[in-house]
Amino acid sequence: MPFRVSADAFHLAATEAFKLLPRELLEPLDNVQIFVEPRYELLPHEHPDTQLFGYYDGVALSERGIDEIGRLPDRIVLFQETFEEECEDWAGIVRELRITLVHEIAHHLGLSEERIHELGWG
């Protein structure tokens, strides 16, 4: 059974999860904003069982050049409904938010999926 929370409560859970992130992961963050969307809308080519917790949209730090100065912030987008569907309680939502934030921040840092999993962050 899904564990539903209000939008305000979900933002609070995301804030709690963010505070649990290791400092070495947060220090290099540059020009990133975190957004919450109610739900993920499947793309036509995606499998109907796709469960996306979030994604990173931007240019990884490892790929940036001097032409990146003045650009809009990168984005990490979190999908509230996925967390509610997959988690049984508040602690589960905070735990999954932390895992997702680590994963998406790792993409911001330029780490590949393979490296993220090697580090135990995926």
Rank of each mutant, 00 (worst) to 15 (best):
M1A: 12
G70L: 11
E63M: 15
S112H: 02
V102Q: 13
A9D: 14
L26M: 11
E104F: 14
E68I: 02
K19P: 00
I99A: 10
E27Q: 08
L119M: 13
H45C: 05
E81Q: 15
P2C: 05
R23W: 05
L42N: 05
R95Y: 10
D8I: 04
W121I: 00
V59T: 13
F35H: 14
V5R: 05
L97I: 09
E113S: 12
E114M: 06
G110Y: 08
A106S: 14
P22H: 01
I116W: 08
V59N: 05
V32I: 15
F3D: 02
L21Q: 07
T15V: 10
E113A: 14
G110W: 07
R98P: 05
H47Y: 07
A91L: 11
T15Q: 15
F18R: 01
F35G: 00
G120F: 02
F10E: 12
E96G: 01
A91F: 02
A106P: 00
R95K: 09
L61N: 03
A14Q: 13
D30W: 13
E68M: 06
P22M: 02
E85W: 04
V102D: 07
Y40Q: 07
G122M: 02
L26Y: 11
E88Y: 01
L111V: 01
E41R: 12
L109W: 14
L42H: 13
T50R: 15
L12K: 06
L43K: 11
Q80S: 05
F18P: 02
F35W: 12
E63P: 00
D49H: 11
F35Y: 15
V32E: 10
L111D: 08
L21D: 02
A9H: 12
L52C: 11
S112W: 08
G92T: 04
D89Y: 00
G110K: 09
D30C: 09
A13N: 06
I66Y: 07
V102L: 11
I76F: 11
